[in-house]
């Protein structure tokens, strides 16, 4: 599914990320662990094509990301990557349903209301479709963020510390939900987390060493 080779990233003179080699096959579920500051978020950004590493080769879904120029990379990201950011970052000016439609629109997919409504229903949050994100509970907001990440059926689903703000029961439920959703759309899953509570939910683990 993706292969990283000799990845290095520096913010100015500071080395922020170093990955020797990491290969992931289609459909696998990986936990990306490592201490704070080891570069987990940076690595997710590299995988999503949001950050071009200072050195190394990134192949995702058969595509060498370095070969794509700026707007082609944006289009590629919209079609192939589902991203659940740590702070969720739902668009507060739009209601829940529109947040999903926005994801379809920006990815260049067909804007299909019924797909969005169905997805919300399957996550048990169709009742809040017309609410603004500020009016949601933390658990509901997280489900919306996951729905937004999977609505375009991405090949690779990335989540950054999805359980940081949750209690034990919810943390395990969130990990299970991500895994289930990735399975439902046939996506490969990578969850960056240093949360020990969810380790058991993943069959594979990549431990990131501080650079």
């Amino acid at each position: 599914m993706f292969a990283l080779e000799g990845i290095e990233h520096r913010f100015g003179p500071v080395a922020a990320l170093r990955v020797g080699q990491w290969r992931v096959e289609r459909g696998e579920r990986w936990l990306l662990s490592g201490a704070s500051g080891s570069g987990k978020s940076t690595l997710l950004n590299v995988l999503a094509g949001l950050l071009r590493p200072s050195a190394g080769k990134v192949m995702v879904a058969g595509q060498d990301l370095a070969q794509l120029e700026e707007s082609a990379l944006d289009r590629w990201r919209g079609r192939n990557i589902g991203y659940v950011p740590q702070r969720l970052h739902l668009i507060e000016s739009l209601d829940v349903l529109d947040n999903l439609l926005l994801a379809q629109f920006l990815a260049g997919a067909t804007v299909d209301r019924s797909v969005a409504v169905e997805l919300l229903a399957s996550l048990g949050i169709d009742r809040v479709a017309s609410r603004k994100p500020q009016a949601l509970s933390q658990g509901q907001a997280q489900r919306v963020a996951i729905a937004r990440a999977v609505i375009n059926r991405p090949a690779l689903l990335l989540a950054d510390e999805p359980t940081a703000a949750l209690d034990d029961a919810n943390a395990r439920a969130a990990a299970a939900l991500l895994s289930e959703r990735a399975g439902a759309v046939g996506a490969t899953l990578v969850v960056a987390s240093h949360d020990g509570r969810i380790g058991s939910a993943f069959s594979k683990r990549y431990e990131l060493e501080p650079a």
């Binding site: 707007s71 944006d74 990201r77 507060e92 920006l106 990815a107």
Partner: peptide
């Protein structure tokens, strides 16, 4: 800026 950043992760180009 966060909204715009999220839009970029959803596939929006700089131009958009």
């Amino acid at each position: 800026q966060y909204d715009l950043a999220v839009m970029r992760t959803l596939g929006a180009s700089r131009w958009r």
